[in-house]
Amino acid sequence: MIYLYQGVALLEINELKQIVEALLIATPEPLTEARFHTCLGDSGSKIPLQEVISELASDYENSGRSFFIKEVAGGYQIVTNAEFESYIKGLFSKSGKLRLSQAALETLAIVSYKQPVTRNDIESIRGVSSDSSLRTLLDRKLLEIRGREDGPGRALLYRTSTEFLQYFGLNSVKDLPRLREVEDILAEDDNELV
């Protein structure tokens, strides 16, 4: 099959799949549509990456590969299937990925819904000092510092990073589940009391 765009033969689909596969293997960050077009140059600017990806993805699925293509952080990346975790763990000195503490997760939740935020914003919601959670999250690159607040003290502003999206398997922060409204929580509590 030849990939056609407005009647013009561009590239054969098999060749395209190979190109995309090679890009996915070599990419240091999620492969975006824009980056894909840069890689293909003029000839490829009309080819929708998403179509090639879905062809490739069904190839992988049908041939029983140990990995799949994940849509993450606005692009695509190759990720291993969950069932191989126990073997993969052996590659690392620590026993698999470290889990985040409850405090770090709370801090992360606040930043992801309210970003950009200062440390003070976080602490006034949590009611505890959050220095060490912030440090852990910065060290693990799940958060990054994005400038300073304009107000007095010019406090640092924190944001979530691309690594954050990868860590939680999200395509964008917009994909986070909606935060429940206070009214909903209260309504539920009232029911509990009855």
Binding site: Q102, E106, F168, V182
Partner: peptide, 30 residues
């Protein structure tokens, strides 16, 4: 304060679930 904190505490358990779900997947890194 308590209600606001409760909202994020709930969200935290969602994050914890997402973390558990993503944990066994490893990225291909060059």
């Amino acid at each position: 304060m308590l209600l606001e904190y409760k909202r994020y505490k709930e969200a935290t358990s969602t994050f914890s679930e997402m973390e558990r779900f993503e944990r066994p997947h490893y990225y291909h890194i060059p």
